[in-house]
Design a protein around this nucleic acid. Structure first.
Lengths: 236, 236
DNA sequence: GGTCCATGAAAGATACCACCTTTGAAATGC
DNA sequence: GCATTTCAAAGGTGGTATCTTTCATGGACC
């Protein structure tokens, strides 16, 4: 049974994923502009794969509204206005490319819009466990923040916000947890965060958690708005 | 060449779209529960099409995270938590099915979250034409509202809100115009709207438009929040 | 006899190929 | 300038090959 091939890299996990990545990035990055045409045959040659694989890729790109295909014409790149900008892959590609700053700003603004209502929702709908968890996480945030342990602080912060979104009782909100995670992570990595979290931030996290714990939607919403105030100022 | 076949084409515009519709609806509607398995062969027989078509469909459903496929296992239905709930088709299917009420509530809440910030954004970024259009539409709303012409009122209302979203300068917001349209239309059709729009609604539309016209983000946001207040009360 | 791991077989997705059909843009003809 | 023809490219079919995962079988060891 000697496993001669220990090769841990099945690499070609799925053939098309790498093609999707490359084409998606080119479109989102703007190297392939709206109206530009591709053909299946051309892509076959370019990537050295069969028609089937290219077709699969086109179906996927089509369902993200990055392209559409017409007979006799080929595959046409769509203009940005048509893209499914909530698709996780498109969000990722935009954050990787030259439009990072703009995308980051959009996501931050979206977060600022959604989180206050998510907090109110959590105050209404959270389970007992979730309310307890919110208090616990807010406590950890203070401890880690005052100790200046930034990385752990970030991890708990992400957990805290994800908890609120999922407790909000609104699946459209919980689906945004990746967005919020990305924004929080980006803020820390870009050095937009103070060396040690401000007292104000710690206090408002605690206020949000407390309001959720005592099922007080109005206070939860207000506290979250307060928490986000400085974030909003930074982007406007 | 005599076209013997005038056949008005059995609608099957594109083959797979109807299959996607049917399967998507079953999954979203819950007839196909999470973990349930399908195979390509079985679907081939069921719909009487070739493997290629089924594969194309699976690629699309997969990219919406409604299913995932594994070798030797088949195609497995994903649990609702994984779905791309911002995909226009999924939103539509959910609104058609038994989960309509819940989905409607979620979308309304999302709208309430986003529109105030969109209004603020519009006050900052709108073009001169857009500012003028906002004022004009608000004026039309008053006229139509006072005249009790509900259908035209709805159409202009939809146009007004779509304008704000697209003028907001945030593509994540503008991508939600379908959502807002759907919510507005639903409110009217479900008889949630008063016979003639309330004075308060007319006045706050005007206030939003005026704030945008004079590039006053804070007032625009506040006026929009005021406009949405009664909507929010209705869903909580 | 019961538990555990190796082995093999089978099921079903992934991938490639060759070929036919349909569509609609563009060239051509009147 | 309109109708007709042409034809390139996508849509669709079905066959074959490959690969991965599961599941059942069977032997070894406790």
């Amino acid at each position: 049974m000697a496993q001669p091939l220990q090769d841990p890299a099945p690499a070609a996990a799925v053939m098309y994923s790498s093609i999707i990545e490359e084409l998606g990035r080119s479109i989102v990055g703007g190297e392939l502009g709206p109206g530009e045409r591709l053909t299946i045959e051309e892509l076959q040659n370019r990537f050295g794969v069969s028609r089937t694989v290219i077709r699969d890729c086109m179906r996927i790109l089509e369902s993200m509204n990055l392209v559409f295909s017409k007979r006799r014409v080929g595959i046409v790149v769509q203009s940005p206005g048509h893209w499914n900008v909530y698709d996780a892959r498109i969000i990722r590609w935009r954050l990787e490319g030259t439009s990072r700053a703009r995308q980051f700003r959009s996501l931050t603004e979206l977060r600022c819009a959604v989180e206050p209502l998510a907090a109110a929702g959590a105050a209404r709908h959270a389970t007992e466990e979730q309310r307890a968890a919110a208090l616990r996480l807010a406590g950890q945030l203070r401890a880690l923040g005052e100790a200046g342990r930034l990385e752990e602080f970030l991890a708990v912060d992400i957990e805290f916000h994800a908890l609120l979104l999922s407790a909000s009782g609104n699946e459209m909100f919980s689906a945004l947890d990746d967005v919020v995670t990305e924004v929080l992570r980006g803020r820390t990595n870009q050095g937009l965060m103070p060396r040690t979290p401000r007292e104000h931030a710690l206090a408002s996290h605690e206020a949000v958690a407390a309001a959720i714990a005592r099922a007080d939607p109005h206070s939860a919403e207000a506290a979250m708005r307060d928490l986000l105030a400085e974030v909003r100022e930074a982007i406007t």
